[in-house]
Protein backbone atom coordinates (compact mmCIF):
# COMPACT_ATOMS: atom_id res chain seq x y z
CA UNK A 1 0.00 0.00 0.00
CA UNK A 2 1.54 3.27 -0.98
CA UNK A 3 -1.22 5.46 -2.32
CA UNK A 4 -1.83 9.03 -1.31
CA UNK A 5 -4.90 10.40 0.42
CA UNK A 6 -5.81 14.06 0.41
CA UNK A 7 -6.69 15.00 4.00
CA UNK A 8 -9.17 17.89 3.81
CA UNK A 9 -6.91 19.83 6.19
CA UNK A 10 -3.35 18.61 5.59
CA UNK A 11 -3.44 17.84 1.86
CA UNK A 12 -2.07 14.77 0.09
CA UNK A 13 -0.26 12.42 2.47
CA UNK A 14 1.03 8.87 2.47
CA UNK A 15 -1.68 6.38 3.39
CA UNK A 16 0.46 5.16 6.29
CA UNK A 17 -0.41 8.39 8.13
CA UNK A 18 -4.04 7.36 8.21
CA UNK A 19 -6.25 4.83 9.88
CA UNK A 20 -8.92 3.18 7.78
CA UNK A 21 -12.31 3.52 9.46
CA UNK A 22 -14.44 1.20 7.35
CA UNK A 23 -17.37 1.71 5.08
CA UNK A 24 -19.81 4.52 5.75
CA UNK A 25 -22.87 2.83 7.18
CA UNK A 26 -26.37 3.84 8.06
CA UNK A 27 -27.11 3.09 11.70
CA UNK A 28 -30.50 1.42 12.24
CA UNK A 29 -33.19 3.04 14.34
CA UNK A 30 -33.09 1.85 17.98
CA UNK A 31 -36.24 -0.22 17.49
CA UNK A 32 -35.11 -1.74 14.19
CA UNK A 33 -35.24 -5.49 13.56
CA UNK A 34 -32.44 -7.61 14.88
CA UNK A 35 -31.61 -8.53 11.28
CA UNK A 36 -30.93 -4.86 10.54
CA UNK A 37 -28.65 -4.61 13.56
CA UNK A 38 -26.78 -7.76 12.60
CA UNK A 39 -26.32 -6.43 9.07
CA UNK A 40 -25.11 -3.09 10.42
CA UNK A 41 -22.62 -4.72 12.74
CA UNK A 42 -21.29 -7.53 10.59
CA UNK A 43 -22.17 -7.21 6.91
CA UNK A 44 -20.12 -5.05 4.55
CA UNK A 45 -20.61 -4.35 0.85
CA UNK A 46 -16.85 -4.64 0.21
CA UNK A 47 -17.24 -3.43 -3.36
CA UNK A 48 -14.72 -4.18 -6.08
CA UNK A 49 -14.75 -0.61 -7.26
CA UNK A 50 -15.74 2.71 -5.79
CA UNK A 51 -16.92 2.95 -2.23
CA UNK A 52 -17.35 5.56 0.48
CA UNK A 53 -15.26 5.17 3.61
CA UNK A 54 -14.15 6.74 6.85
CA UNK A 55 -10.50 7.71 7.29
CA UNK A 56 -8.71 9.20 10.28
CA UNK A 57 -5.57 11.31 9.95
CA UNK A 58 -3.82 9.64 12.83
CA UNK A 59 -0.34 11.08 12.30
CA UNK A 60 -1.62 14.49 11.28
CA UNK A 61 -4.55 16.64 12.30
CA UNK A 62 -6.37 13.72 13.98
CA UNK A 63 -9.59 14.49 12.19
CA UNK A 64 -12.01 11.96 10.78
CA UNK A 65 -13.09 12.52 7.22
CA UNK A 66 -14.77 10.61 4.44
CA UNK A 67 -13.36 9.46 1.14
CA UNK A 68 -14.49 7.87 -2.08
CA UNK A 69 -11.91 5.25 -3.09
CA UNK A 70 -11.71 2.66 -5.82
CA UNK A 71 -10.69 -0.57 -4.12
CA UNK A 72 -9.39 -2.08 -7.35
CA UNK A 73 -6.59 0.44 -7.83
CA UNK A 74 -6.66 2.49 -4.61
CA UNK A 75 -7.45 5.64 -6.51
CA UNK A 76 -8.96 8.19 -4.13
CA UNK A 77 -11.57 10.13 -6.06
CA UNK A 78 -12.58 12.61 -3.39
CA UNK A 79 -12.30 13.39 0.31
CA UNK A 80 -14.54 15.55 2.49
CA UNK A 81 -15.67 16.13 6.04
CA UNK A 82 -18.79 14.29 7.09
CA UNK A 83 -21.85 16.46 6.93
CA UNK A 84 -24.45 16.76 9.67
CA UNK A 85 -25.75 13.35 8.66
CA UNK A 86 -22.35 11.69 8.97
CA UNK A 87 -23.55 9.08 11.41
CA UNK A 88 -27.19 8.49 10.61
Amino acid sequence: MSFLLACPICGPRDVYEFRFGGEILRRPQPDADEQDWVAYRYLRANPAGQGREWWFHRLGCRRWFQAERDTTDNRVIDTWFAGEDGHV
Partner: peptide, 13 residues
Protein backbone atom coordinates in the same frame (compact mmCIF):
# COMPACT_ATOMS: atom_id res chain seq x y z
CA UNK B 1 -10.66 5.53 22.79
CA UNK B 2 -9.58 8.95 21.59
CA UNK B 3 -10.22 7.91 17.96
CA UNK B 4 -13.50 6.21 18.89
CA UNK B 5 -14.80 9.29 20.66
CA UNK B 6 -13.77 11.55 17.79
CA UNK B 7 -15.34 9.23 15.24
CA UNK B 8 -18.75 9.23 16.86
CA UNK B 9 -18.49 13.00 17.05
CA UNK B 10 -17.53 13.53 13.41
CA UNK B 11 -20.26 15.15 11.40
CA UNK B 12 -22.81 15.17 14.24
CA UNK B 13 -22.66 18.90 14.85
Amino acid sequence: VDQWMRWWLAGTG
